[in-house]
Design a protein around this nucleic acid. Sequence first.
DNA 1: TAGATTGTTAATCGATTAACAATC
DNA 2: TAGATTGTTAATCGATTAACAATC
Lengths: 225, 225
Amino acid sequence: MSADSKDKTVRGVAMEGKGISQAVIGRLPRYFRYLGELKDEGVERISSQDLSGLMQVTASQIRQDFNNFGGFGQQGYGYNVEYLYEEIGRILGLDKQHHLIIIGAGNLGQALANYMDFEKRGFIMRGIFDINPALIGRKVRAMTVESMELLERRIRENEIDIAVLTVPKGSAVGVADRLVACGIRAIWNFAHVDLDVPEGVQVENVHLLDSLMKLSYNISCCEER
Amino acid sequence: MSADSKDKTVRGVAMEGKGISQAVIGRLPRYFRYLGELKDEGVERISSQDLSGLMQVTASQIRQDFNNFGGFGQQGYGYNVEYLYEEIGRILGLDKQHHLIIIGAGNLGQALANYMDFEKRGFIMRGIFDINPALIGRKVRAMTVESMELLERRIRENEIDIAVLTVPKGSAVGVADRLVACGIRAIWNFAHVDLDVPEGVQVENVHLLDSLMKLSYNISCCEER
DNA sequence: TAGATTGTTAATCGATTAACAATC
DNA sequence: TAGATTGTTAATCGATTAACAATC
């Protein structure tokens, strides 16, 4: 890797550049998951070859992926599982805590609020909001559903990084605008619309219906052979 | 397109071949969504150019994508919105009904059971299962949570296409094996593990934690500039 | 007919895989 | 040292974009 596409590595913290493709990023959580399992099983080191067999991706891709962030391995040895796990966690920003609020306390919003695995990785739910007066005041796990009027204030008070958008598609764009206006960094969007946000605000879409449609396609395309 | 990469088109039903890349398939639901909106607004025809402006993808890609399934447009005219909408729906298999069961009646399973938009597109929930005796018998929308013992019987009786897997990661692999054994066609997997199924069984993963991790990466990579 | 816009081929770009020299 | 395995460059493959002839 040339000196200018690779960014400086400061004391083990890979200060990765802007040039990493989303294809690579998309694979990091899966590496992280497998490495976590290996670590739990007490495996100390692993080669790209062995990880390749386990994960069903080429060893070449594994090495290429890791090298985007500087070398984590050692020739003739492979990769230290714990070290690699830690590094990928750091790259993914899992060494820092994130504060989230959920907007939309319907079924999905409540389900996400109750899902414990997020907290284990540092994603802390700090509030849940709804316009429906019938829901306001209701307890959801450790939180109380609050009025949408309090949205901006709470975002500032509680240093919220990420807004989880589980409102109906009709209100999503309006809510997203309010979020952007009060300086949110990221939106995890479950509403079935595309959000248009200024550069610097991250949007990650979870379009469940789209996902189901892909499944539907793959069912029908296979039987038609 | 050469005669042998393009499959026969029988009476408007595009019998698409196996050769369509998942990149293309992944974009179809979004086209479908935009075309549905245009249709609802009463727009009769649209050019790849205009759709390009709307959807923020290149006109070239739009034409290329549609041409994977044979020509839906007309030179000098563009695409008929309603026709294209119908065709893409058909390609995605939305002209047929799908029968689903949910396995795991926890928060997420219940949230998905209550989500109305799936039915509108022909995804009909026909059952919900759990091992937890405390949940069995409970009403979820029009369904009653049933024991896992009834799983295989219900799949056969109700002609289930798709199993929605919302069980903890520890039990997911075991349940998936049972599903495969009794001939399920497709698994919509929300459990945080990779399922290993035989060819011909479709798996669509929704790894929420992975999605959140990507968001986390994109937050931290931007501030580090 | 002239203008518009597709279908389709060719050019470019990016991502994946293969190969191998560097090195532990 | 010899063997193993990475880091990295080069080759391949696939996907996207550009261009334009076909045609409505």
